[in-house]
Design a protein around this nucleic acid. Structure first.
Lengths: 214, 214
DNA sequence: GACGGTATACTCGGCTTAGAGTATCCGTCA
DNA sequence: TGACGGATACTCTAAGCCGAGTATACCGTC
């Protein structure tokens, strides 16, 4: 798990498109967007040009020509260096090989959930289910769109992954919402009482008498 | 979907602990870590103090006293303001209610996967399976640890979520690895040929003759 | 009583990032 | 013909974020 000189995933995408042919930054963005990569990688111009500079500094890419048409801004065409090709392969391998802990917003939300009273949380989860359904439909629509543009399934594998993860979350949230509504969730009783202002459930995180965990 | 004045999830955690009692930043971190929240929310001191400042500027919290013991650095104790309580509830509700698109590294990796030849990818996925197994064991160990410290299940719900998501990914990656190894994956043929340097598969992303998608 | 290790409590600087802004060219529709 | 939107191709700046560093206090031990 080496520390990368440039760590933004957009830089990986830049190395990947440059491995096919040299081009200027704006064209990279066009190519990536044309293939629907903006669904899996944050592409924004602010970051793109910074990332390209950083890759030049790290000698993973180099400018090969610059020219201008009329009075338009100058275009600089970049090419992958041998070191860049190595970096591309190694970095991509590392990403596929090892799973790194990430911090999705919802996980943070769940971990603070007891701050809200249970009666409030149940309908929120119901809304989330709707929200997930919508997102699922969007992903499917995106895949259909790309496929009808002639893109191979192999190049939409990340969308299939996302779809599967959405389905998994959906099932889990449905289950949690049900447990809340049916009252079958463990600890639901004290959670409810605590929000009633019941002093006996002060610091209700810990079972039994308060214990300091450090 | 309002734009938050302070958007770091750590800020939400700060609001949450302050809703129980006033305290100084270092104590917030201790309390959050004691409850295992560093598993679901990035807690680091650099961000903590910046985030506390930002919350003060936004009037969600305010300093209530500062004092020093001996010659130790000064401690500033903060308290939640009414506006902060509103923000806490609204923000947390929004997170639970709506799913926002995120960009996990692995999704980016998958979307660029065809850059590597298929024979290379298969063993990488096998390694990922091991890596996921390890992570899964860690999550389980963490839950056992916390439970034996007396923490209620309700306060480990985010760990259950993470465990479920890990299992889902694990099953999917196993399936993908198998398809690669058995040769049953769609488009595997051209993918292989392309890495052999077969010119007939140039720009193999698109089926049939090259079409420009913009 | 000197020494090392750990806990306490922050501070600082530099790198990353996002998002808005700028300037030019081109097609088209009235 | 001229005006307007949209595509092209960057640039700039404020803010966010993190990791490493700092300084003191406490505690055991040899």
């Amino acid at each position: 798990m080496v520390k990368r000189k440039v760590s933004n995933p957009l830089a990986l995408a830049v190395l990947a498109v440059l491995s096919e042919s040299s081009m200027h930054p704006y064209e990279m963005a066009q190519k990536l967007k044309g293939r629907g990569k903006e669904q899996s990688i944050r592409i924004n111009y602010g970051s793109l040009y910074t990332v390209v500079d950083a890759l030049v500094r790290a000698s993973f890419i180099e400018p090969v020509e610059t020219f201008r048409e009329g009075r338009r801004p100058e275009r600089t065409v970049y090419a992958l260096t041998p070191a860049g090709e190595v970096e591309l392969r190694e970095w991509l391998s590392e990403i596929l090989r090892t799973s790194t802990k990430e911090y999705p917003e919802f996980e943070a939300g769940l971990s603070l959930m007891p701050v809200l009273p249970p009666e409030t949380v149940a309908p929120l989860l119901r809304q989330r289910i709707e929200s997930l359904d919508i997102r699922l439909a969007e992903v499917r629509a995106f895949m259909d769109q790309m496929r009808s543009n002639g893109l191979r399934r192999l190049f939409l594998i990340e969308a299939e992954y996302e779809e599967m993860m959405l389905r998994a979350e959906l099932a889990w949230v449905k289950c949690l919402a049900e447990e809340l509504e049916e009252g079958t969730l463990e600890d639901l009783e004290i959670w409810y009482r605590w929000h009633q202002g019941d002093e006996s459930s002060r610091s209700f995180a810990i079972r039994g008498k308060e214990r300091h965990v450090s």
